[in-house]
Design a protein around this nucleic acid. Sequence first.
DNA 1: TAGTGGTCTAGACCACCTC
DNA 2: AGGTGGTCTAGACCACTAT
Lengths: 236, 236
Amino acid sequence: MKTPLYRQIQANLKEKITSGIYEEGGLLPSENDLCSEFSATRMTVRQALNELVREGYITRQHGKGSIVSASRKSLGLLSLKGWTEVVVASDRHGKTLVLEGPVLKPLDDMIFMPLLEGEAKDDFIFFKRLRLVEDSPVMFEQTYIPNKNLPNFIEEPLLEGSLFRTLLIRYHVDVQSMSQEVRAIAADKETASLLKIKQKSPVLHLLRKYKTSVEGFFLYSSIYCNTEKFAISSFN
Amino acid sequence: MKTPLYRQIQANLKEKITSGIYEEGGLLPSENDLCSEFSATRMTVRQALNELVREGYITRQHGKGSIVSASRKSLGLLSLKGWTEVVVASDRHGKTLVLEGPVLKPLDDMIFMPLLEGEAKDDFIFFKRLRLVEDSPVMFEQTYIPNKNLPNFIEEPLLEGSLFRTLLIRYHVDVQSMSQEVRAIAADKETASLLKIKQKSPVLHLLRKYKTSVEGFFLYSSIYCNTEKFAISSFN
DNA sequence: TAGTGGTCTAGACCACCTC
DNA sequence: AGGTGGTCTAGACCACTAT
């Protein structure tokens, strides 16, 4: 047995959550039930559940149970949150437009330099996507994925439009954590026009490196956010 | 016994780390040693250590031990990080100027509205501080602390200039976690002049609510960051 | 090889929530 | 009252790091 049992349980539950088998706002099976299901002890099950809390998939309440969180847009620094709490509640009011990709393209070292530690220079699959909330564009995202052990990735469409879900279900690559750099910058021409704001407006710039369950397999993202209507929020 | 053992261990170790008893880059006692010291089992000690990892005080390495991290400037979304890694390594190259306070002042509901959930409207102790790295101003911070069970807080100076350390050592209030909203905005006149940038330059705005070991006791901070030279980075 | 952290078991008692 | 998660014990075996 190579991957720890708690990681297996974690990935299994994550799969069931993202696929809707466990509904948003609903309860996961109790710890004892999960113990039976996975033939593990409570400490092991709890370790898996704690990881899911850390990743934002569930919250827990004492006498009640493990509650499935409203779907998240990303890891770590997470859900978009605005005046209307409604927008937060579900992904359904959000849309994602694929502007470009998937295509093969080398990683832009200049941009991602601060996050690199000398990974193998593979070919990367590139996406350029625009995310909208209630028809307002709020995020402009450019993503790089190593083109390694991902057969047919470019040919097949994303599962339900979700990159992370596709990686998890189709290739068993579980995105587990992230490091990032955050800056405030003036929007350039392309960003401003996509986010429908004036050029040189302040936008949030996030440089992200995602760690996965596969050794040495990292994803990279550069994200520009319009935070006028929706702030980025995070918990710890 | 009210507060869990692992929280006590956590606070105890945090105190020893921030006071320098355990040096930056050095090792904590092994898990087994800590078990003896606190009369606890490994699982309990590990729970405390995991919390310290989550808060960024230590990292852990398999056959080696628990390594004390370089000192952090804040919780959660954390250390300032720039081209020169040197700046990160220690707090000593940083400076903090107290521009105003401590004085009593009501909380500015308008600003912190998104973070409030109906806490008691106490009087607050107010600070206005400017943080510099290598003599460049990078953060302009306004902090509100409930004036509740903090005898002589205003009269006495901060321990080593650190607010969190003062709360921990003098009042046994342990700051444990944080939620925040992040935005990119155009610098107003005061912020621009303090951070020595042009008015309307993009700055990062962080609205923070800190959770402590004391039930119902929260700290609030509004922080403006100049991210031209130094980005904010975070791990997960 | 000795010591460290990583994982895991099989129990236990308690506090909280719902019924 | 019964079920839930929160805390805790007392062991065990393994993988990694140092020497």
